[in-house]
Design a protein around this nucleic acid. Structure first.
Ligand SMILES: [Mn+2]
Ligand SMILES: [Mn+2]
Ligand SMILES: [Zn+2]
Ligand SMILES: [Zn+2]
Lengths: 138, 138
DNA sequence: CTTCTACTTTAGACTGATTATAAACTGATA
DNA sequence: TATCAGTTTATAATCAGTCTAAAGTAGAAG
């Protein structure tokens, strides 16, 4: 995917293709594999790998905008900070509670049976399965 | 359960039965049903319902001590703050993302099939299923 | 090309949950 | 009763995330 594609993608979804947003698109979507990251991870990555100092506020703004457009997902865990995910397919995670490492599990890999009915008046939006793991002691 | 039972419970697990811990035990474990709460919820509850002003730091200390002893569980969600749970059985949750309300789902209600093997060298500690729900619009 | 304006970016202030500190207090033991 | 490690507490510190208001910029219009 080239620069111009991101510009179109942004414009088509009503986001002005600013220098910062385009660079962040490159960082997030010009990759072999999807990945998980924190806001700080991304801010540092932009600086180091893309030579682009983007203010933290803008990184937050952009990620929230991208999330609203469905370009990234946000994941919350036992941690204090939240993670973003460029894998936007419905999927689950292994989560290493010691290292904070996240590993995808394809949605089709786990079968959920007998999901109970939601409380009256509410409907299910999404189901998150987190399998907490830890290094074998010894 | 009476006061003396909590004193024994605390002593048996190596926690000094202080006035604050005993009162918190009463608040948490002298109930019909288990429940979910935040640190602030509990601090306020102690003041209002138990006429016991306990410093926030102590509430944190106590909850973390109780968690380590397995008397409560901690639940992390998309929220900024974390929740505690007096239901220490292995179970899952409905989570209303708008109201932050948590509702228990008995572990036996949901059947998880084909759980993939954890990454090499890691083993599964716990599986959390969160079913995000929302009020039916209209 | 220049002007105009709404949308963006930004530094820095602010918030709110949680943790750290260090002094005062207290349960257990002798 | 004296002693002391474990506890409580007020308060400061931390840290992710949000807010603000000023400066910058993309895009439209002339
Ligand atoms: Mn967020
Ligand atoms: Mn905690
Ligand atoms: Zn993922
Ligand atoms: Zn629960």
């Amino acid at each position: 995917m080239k620069n111009q594609d991101f510009i179109n993608k942004l414009r088509n979804s009503g986001l002005r293709p600013t220098k910062q947003r385009i660079k962040i698109c490159e960082a997030l979507f010009n990759t072999e594999k999807t990945f998980h990251f924190t806001v700080n991870d991304l801010a540092k990555m932009m600086q180091k790998n893309f030579n682009e100092k983007i203010s933290l506020a803008t990184v937050y703004n952009t990620l929230h905008a991208f999330k609203k457009k469905g370009y990234v997902k946000e994941i919350s865990l036992g941690n204090d900070k939240s993670y973003f995910d460029t894998n936007i397919s419905s999927h689950h995670h292994f989560y290493d509670t010691k290292t904070n490492e996240l590993i995808d599990i394809d949605s089709s890999k786990i079968e959920l049976k007998n999901i109970p009915n939601p409380p009256k008046g509410k409907s299910i939006k999404e189901i998150d399965v987190v399998i907490n793991v830890e290094n074998d002691s010894q």
